[in-house]
Computed example of a mutant assay.
Amino acid sequence: MSAISTVDVGGAAPYRIEIGPGLLGDGARLAAQARGRHALLISDRHVAPLYAHGVEAALRAARPDLHLATHVMPAGESHKTLACFGEAIEALAELGATRDATVYALGGGVVGDLAGFAAACWMRGVDCVQLPTTLLSMVDSSVGGKTAVDIPQGKNLVGAFHPPRAVIADTAALRTLPARELRAGLAEVIKYGALGDPLFFQWLEAEREALLASDDHALAEAIARSCAHKAGIVERDPLEKGERALLNLGHTFGHAVEAEQGYSGDGRDALNHGEAVAVGMVLAARLSAMLGMAPDADTERLRALLDAYGLPTALPAGLAPEALLARMRLDKKNLAGRLRLVLWRGIGRAEVVPGVDEARVLDVLAG
């Protein structure tokens, strides 16, 4: 097995992120995270046929005494719902899962968010091991312990902070990832450079061809650097009281787009999460320039990089600015009814800006 990269997340509930190829078949590594005799593997209909059987076999070989069940949910953001959450809870009940049970979340961000939320709620909290299979989930949703489901009024409005027991990212899983999903994950990677690391941003400009070609070394480097950035911020601000909000660069705009499209980004005509974040980052940069906070040249450099990675940089047609603004008013970062957005002073210098003028936001949304 190739060398494994590790990133340690500290704080009150420390855990380790392990990154490398072949980890989903490493039964000893997977089983070491199960403290009790019950484990529920949660996956979806896209990922389960590819990897669930292998993970089950590896766990059973390493822990023959483990009472293991698998729950397969429908795939896609449109199924990150209270109804599907309830089905995951029922699966834990049918297993007879005790307080030392472990939930293994095998899949992308939807599975990780929903399975993590189920683990947070079952008996007021059992262990969750994140097994991300997409680049987006490896660099973002599996790290940090934010779990949630969507409701029609907005994305991730029902959830809990529940740090994982471990994150085990098998980079070999990225070989089966569709090109669109790879690009969506790279949007979140670019975000880390944009919000706080201009040298990483420059590296991403230089390594575009290798990353888009799914070069193992380049992807492992991008994942490790992204996770290290997020781990440092999460450790300092685990409950998003301050600095952690910076990780939402582009997300307030992006989440509004996803909600307005009805979370249908797993189809062809709507943006998926990474694509929506790419558009959101450009909108946040344009707003920053409009407010005199940042140079137009940095907005153009960000737009050019996202465009070079094949990501969208403009709002889809047919979305009303007023409707998007109404969605943005539900964002969890807002205070006292005023918009609180993550903007920037230029590449690598993001900051949280309270009391943003809604008229200026509408101007940006209207193009």
Rank of each mutant, 00 (worst) to 15 (best):
M1P: 13
V7R: 06
A12D: 12
A12C: 00
Y15K: 06
E18K: 00
G20Q: 01
P21Y: 00
D26C: 08
Q33C: 11
R35P: 10
G36C: 06
L40E: 06
S43Y: 05
S43K: 06
H46C: 08
V47F: 02
P49V: 09
L50V: 10
A52S: 10
G54I: 01
E56A: 06
A57M: 05
L59C: 11
H67T: 15
H67P: 13
A75Y: 01
G76P: 09
H79R: 08
A83F: 14
F85I: 00
A91E: 09
L92H: 15
A93C: 11
E94V: 09
Y104V: 04
L106G: 06
G107F: 07
G109K: 03
D113E: 10
A118V: 08
A119G: 13
A120T: 02
A120V: 01
Q130T: 00
L131Y: 07
L131M: 04
P132T: 04
M138I: 10
V143W: 00
T147F: 02
A148Y: 01
P152Q: 05
L157Q: 01
V158F: 06
R165V: 05
A166S: 15
I168E: 06
A173F: 05
A173G: 08
R175Y: 00
L177M: 00
E181N: 14
R183Q: 08
E188Q: 08
V189T: 15
L195M: 14
L199Q: 11
L204V: 11
D216Q: 11
H217D: 13
A218F: 10
A222V: 00
A224C: 14
A228M: 02
A231W: 05
V234D: 14
V234T: 04
P238E: 09
L239R: 15
G242L: 00
E243V: 08
E243Q: 12
L246H: 06
H251N: 11
F253W: 03
H255R: 08
E258Y: 03
Q261N: 14
Y263I: 13
A270E: 14
N272W: 04
V279T: 13
A285F: 05
M290A: 11
G292W: 02
R301S: 14
L302S: 04
L305I: 04
L306T: 01
D307K: 07
Y309L: 01
T313F: 15
A317Y: 06
P321I: 08
A323E: 07
R327N: 13
M328Y: 10
R329E: 15
K332R: 09
K333G: 15
A336I: 02
G337Y: 06
L339G: 11
V342F: 08
L343Q: 05
I347K: 05
A350G: 12
V352K: 00
P354I: 03
A359I: 07
R360A: 07
L362H: 12
L365E: 05
L365D: 08
L365G: 12
A366Q: 09
